[in-house]
Design a protein around this nucleic acid. Structure first.
Lengths: 222, 222
DNA sequence: AAGAATAGCGAGTAAACCTTCACATTTTCG
DNA sequence: CGAAAATGTGAAGGTTTACTCGCTATTCTT
């Protein structure tokens, strides 16, 4: 199976100059990934794009993988931050509102560098892209779980332990697929109501508003 | 971006002998992928494992990618077949039963070579693994959509066009993540009721059975 | 200012691996 | 049978690419 390699920095930049270098390298990696894809993302090319010698790259990064990991770390960090902000605002409003807000947050999170996200998802292998992504989710799962438990009385929820997990996986599954296949949907606002309904129907079916038929001409499936 | 390469067979085997060769090559590819991962899956190693000369490999496969694609094609074909069988049996039973059966089918589908599936998902990059996977889904989405439209009256469903898509993406998202992270859950039967509830709550919230609190001690979240 | 530490350079190395090709063997079929 | 088509062989070519290392330049410290 895939061998584990070191991906932590080789040396920490201490002077301001070197910090800039490291930053330039990471950004260059992202740029190359975006423009040319993972295949063409060679160490030499990254160095060149960063306007830096290849030797400098290897002063701070032990290997090629660590470059991509750094990019991924940064990107996921941004996403996580965006979501945490939204989750922090989770008020004690009524459930439909809260759910809508959570779903909105997860959608918003995916507005951050969607093209980079795509490359990272689609092209980067074995580095553990998925693993890191899941770690990201694992970080906000407890938040959601805690919220659920606190409001357990208002919900009709067997097995609240699994609920947070299922919820997050479901939303994330739909969103990330839509981002890959039909990026337009997010902007069109098609997704939010659907996901809200999905989750609300899961957590508290009795709270789903009754709607007989679609009032608007439904946009047909692809 | 990633360049498109030919992945179709170079020559079609006509004699029985060569058919066996091709089969051996594809199977060897799968075996190597399983045992050593994508990284170590070199053409020479595949040839060796298949007990065949490297020249023979290139007689039928234009390049390395096409080998993996062949494996993927076979695997997804099996999965698709399994699911199609289940969907074909979609009776006109009541909605909860039908949903349960669909969910069960998708779970069952993932019992086919889960380890190979994992390698294909996690390690194989840029070949368009995800694309093919999505194509798989696209093939049964119409089936589900048709069923939904036929039974639209019984459902409370705004925008039935998007419903099939969301449904499938949600279930697939949860299942494939669980398969990667907590494979045990599938066998334990934790997942099926949750997913059934998720989908039923989405399609017809008023049909979700009312359950105040979990009767059994809920298996805590990870 | 000088020595030390940190940062930067880039040609060169060494290994990996895909793919080809000229040739050998087997099967088909008139 | 015997020619032609199909199949199989594997050593070697050629390219690509991650990474090293000896050296220089800059910045810090005292």
């Amino acid at each position: 199976m895939a061998t584990q390699r070191r991906v932590t920095p080789r040396k920490r930049p201490s002077q301001g100059r070197s910090k800039a270098t490291v930053e330039a390298i990471v950004q260059a990696t992202a740029r190359v990934l975006l423009k040319d894809g993972y295949e063409a993302c060679t160490t030499n090319r990254v160095a060149e794009t960063a306007g830096v010698s290849i030797g400098s790259v290897y002063q701070y990064f032990p290997n090629k993988e660590s470059l991509v990991v750094a990019v991924m770390e940064g990107h996921l960090g941004q996403m996580q931050e965006a979501l945490a902000r939204r989750l922090g605002e989770l008020s004690d409003a009524d459930l439909p509102t809260v759910v809508k807000s959570m779903v909105g947050g997860m959608l918003e999170m995916h507005r951050i560098q969607p093209r980079l996200h795509r490359v990272l998802l689609e092209q980067v292998p074995r580095i553990g892209a998925l693993k890191r992504l899941h770690e990201l989710n694992d970080q906000y799962e407890p938040l959601v779980a805690a919220w659920l438990e606190a409001h357990q009385e208002q919900l009709e929820l067997p097995n609240p332990g699994a609920a947070a997990y299922v919820m997050i996986a479901a939303v994330e599954g739909v969103v990330s697929r839509v981002m890959l296949e039909k990026p337009g949907w997010v902007e069109l606002g098609v997704l939010e109501p659907q996901l809200t309904r999905l989750i609300l129907g899961y957590l508290a079916p009795h709270l789903v508003p009754i709607t007989r038929r679609a009032p608007s001409p439904a946009p047909a499936a692809p």
